[in-house]
Amino acid sequence: MEQKKNILSVKNLSVSFKMYDKGLEQKDLKVISNLNISVQEGEILAIAGSSGSGKSLLASAILGILPNNASVDGIMTYCGMELTEELQKKLRGKEIALVPQSVAYLDPLMHVGSQVVGVRGTLEKMRTAFKRYELSKEVETMYPFQLSGGMARRILLSTAVIGDARLIVADEPTPGLSKEMAKDAMGHLRTLADEGRGIILITHDIDLAFEYADRVAVFYAGTTVETAPVEDFRNGPESLRHPYSKALWEALPQNGFKPIPGTQPYAGSLPEGCLFWPRCPVRTEACMKGEIPSRSLRGGEVCCIHAT
């Protein structure tokens, strides 16, 4: 693991939106704050967390396609270079690829083939990608609504391999898929990772993350509270560091289905101090003020002052 190259590292990333409150009062709505992740070659990093935690915005932030009223803070590094806006513009669709959720991300009125080619691919590359995913030539002239679920997944994957992506951001690639198809989709991502790519798997399906990822980052209220090797998550709460990760583990059906009391705070009404303190069973006075820094612990990263 130590020898592998870092493909992407994100340090202290924040994303906020300019919003107009009542009247003309303008305020910044922070949806991602102090987020830290890194992905290496050949690795699948799962970003797991319940919906509404701003995970999809992370994908847009990495690709540089956030809406105009968003502002980004923090440092992103891609293969040792700072990932500036210009670099993002140059790399997206080539070295950095997004694998979206569903066919809704394809133009309904355009043949699938020319969409896979896009503006940066070629016909030959598209055919190679189609061959790789066993898509027949007829598929090229099909419209998105004519694709079966499985075909659609493979089409979306071919958009990533056509540009020889080194970093793939897969945003919720499995919802709505049957168990077998989800497995199949994850298998494809695994292969892509084994070929040396770095993959960020954004998902709310925690089971899936535990099964296929190399490392898991737990996402809560717009930040990563813990990043740890997947084995720790398989081992259970004793190996985990953050109270929220432990609670998530215990909330899984196979581990007792214990719900976490309370709800995730919304952007705009985040608590001071540790974002999790209102729901944390082991909180102390110290947790409720100041910023809680991320620190290394037992081969992982954690954002909790009391974690051991």
Partner: peptide, 16 residues
Amino acid sequence: SEYVLFAKARGETTWQ
């Protein structure tokens, strides 16, 4: 739309 977001993610400029 989502397909325009994806098109941008794949490197298309606004004009494209």
